[in-house]
Design a protein around this nucleic acid. Structure first.
Lengths: 334, 334
DNA sequence: CTGAAAGCGCTTACAG
DNA sequence: CTGAAAGCGCTTACAG
């Protein structure tokens, strides 16, 4: 069953394909097509269930009404939640989202950008990895809107939306210190992306400002993508240092592994050990005791990303780049 | 900056676009292009960074190397995990995945199918809602592979991959009964999709087989998409019935709301109340006490879906439809 | 061993 | 008020 083309509709309606095209694209008035013809053609379109071939349209116009979204890992709840919000908001404006995960691999990120490019997506929303700066610059040369989110890419001059990771981390450490904690550990990942670096810097700065020594034995960097059992055992190893009285986990999945690790050793959260997780998760609201977490305002991030994109898509001239930093909030559940 | 076209490459190499096209598509040998020309053209392609326009290619060939994946809600961890696995496996075979969420809305599901159709995706993986039977039949008429997953659609004759929801639920209820539980509640959703119905049926059948009365006051149907506070308060209301000594949650997000509800009332899980959640979640492994869950084999589901799709895409003839039922496993954490 | 040309289904500048 | 025709960037049957 071949699907209908604009030619079939034109034939049935006894008009040219030009006329049909104008009507489909809402340019009938502007092109002064008569009411009668409009009605006739619209009726045929509805009855036949004709849907324009978007591929042909894209080839001709060079755009697609599709926005490409590249995240680190769609199965991470932070990303899947933001993705869902972005999808909803874009959908309401007539844009579709297609997404893919980079797994923090430079090669996969480059491939995804190329795939999106060859599909002529209208705009890009990317949580980047270091190493794709040049690919992003090419997109910008092409005049495509690019919004980085979650983490910035130093050296690329484009739009960015992200939480204030440094401040949120700083405040987390500060809250530990105010509780009287002295040996504060940080469990983070080994990927060197902006938001992880900011979290690390916030940790160090808070220690310095409050005159606590920075001790690198209290910092554990977990290789990205490592099997969870390994991570748990690394964390148990860290906790062999009995002095540790507080720990900040730089991502929610590390916190989950960390909580599992704590279950297996003789430390009691709340009494021996204070815990804060960066990025909230359902598990933390259910844990006994409750686990404090830094919440990024997902809704606001999604909203801002979409707003920036739509502004640029609807503007004929190149807009100034914006760096929108949104405060993240420490939710204390003690 | 216009991007390069095949014409530019042909021009630079001093050959026809036909020749370039053959080389790009690996048909050089078959078309007996000379080694020298192949080398020359390949060199130019690499140096120039030329990437074929997939839109043009799709328009011409009618396919896209893209598989459309339609899930209920990408921010639900069951779907985001399966999506990620499917993405990985498809990617390795040269297929890209684009996904979208239906939110259990018939209209949105139809729109998504139309969008995918007009983008000429090669195959569809769909966790369907009732009401899109005709749209799916149109795809099948079009000879596009369609794999339903997670839930089947009675009345549509196509491929299906899903867990044995009935049996897994039955076994869960059976395990409650063997613990000596007498008043077993079910918290489920009001959407009438196959997998939810199967879970309900498994619940009822187990009661019947073990000579327990079916009491509809023990069944709570939560409206899909309802705000969580509302759900929690519905569940607290249910638990006002003090006789309830066990509860099965038909989805993991309902279980999470349920666990929050239990925290707010004076029931103790393990002592007063046994709990099983359908679909596992990180939170259950961290909860005190641990929460038992029915685990669907995500990896196997993703693997099977992709295998079915690739088989069909590579086969010239129409293959027989397959219904693959994969056992789900009750993970007892008591 | 290689190329000219048709055609996929649209949009749009131009003409009347 | 409406249409014929070019062209977006490819693939492929056909010809030589």
């Amino acid at each position: 069953m071949k699907s209908l083309s604009i030619k079939d509709i034109a034939l049935k309606a006894n008009v040219s394909i030009t006329t049909v095209s104008f009507i489909i694209n809402g340019k009938a008035k502007e092109k002064s097509i008569s009411e009668a013809v409009i009605k006739k053609v619209e009726k045929i379109i509805i009855e036949s269930g004709y849907k324009p071939n978007q591929i042909a349209r894209s080839l001709r116009t060079g755009n697609s009404n599709i926005i490409g979204l590249i995240v680190e890992d769609i199965s991470n709840s932070f990303f899947s939640k933001v993705a869902r919000l972005i999808e909803d908001k874009a959908y309401k404006k007539g844009y579709k989202i297609i997404y893919s995960s980079t797994e923090n691999s430079v090669e996969k990120a480059k491939e995804l950008i190329n795939m999106f490019k060859s599909r002529k997506v209208d705009a890009y929303i990317i949580s980047p990895v270091a190493g794709i700066e040049d690919d992003i610059k090419l997109l910008l040369n092409d005049n495509k809107p690019v919004i980085l989110f979650d983490r910035n890419l130093p050296g690329v001059d484009t739009n960015y939306v992200g939480a204030n990771h440094f401040t949120a981390t700083y405040q987390s450490i500060e809250s530990f210190i105010k509780e009287g904690k002295k040996n504060i550990a940080l469990v983070t990942t080994d990927v060197s992306v902006q938001q992880i670096i900011e979290r690390f810097d916030g940790y160090k700065q808070a220690l310095t400002d409050f005159k606590l020594p920075y001790n690198e034995n209290l910092v554990l960097k977990i290789p990205f993508g490592q099997a969870e059992e390994e991570t748990i055992s690394n964390i148990k190893e860290l906790f062999k240092n009995n002095k540790i009285d507080a720990v900040l986990f730089a991502t929610n999945y590390l916190a989950i592994s960390g909580l599992k690790a704590v279950k297996q050793i003789n430390k009691t959260i709340g009494k021996d050990l204070s815990v804060i997780a960066y990025d909230d998760h359902e598990a933390f609201e259910l844990h006994t005791p409750l686990i404090s977490a830094v919440q990024q305002p997902l809704e606001e991030i999604a909203e801002t990303v979409i707003k920036l994109i739509l502004n640029q898509l609807s503007s004929k001239t190149k807009l100034a780049n914006q760096q929108v930093i949104i405060p993240a909030k420490l939710i204390s559940r003690n």
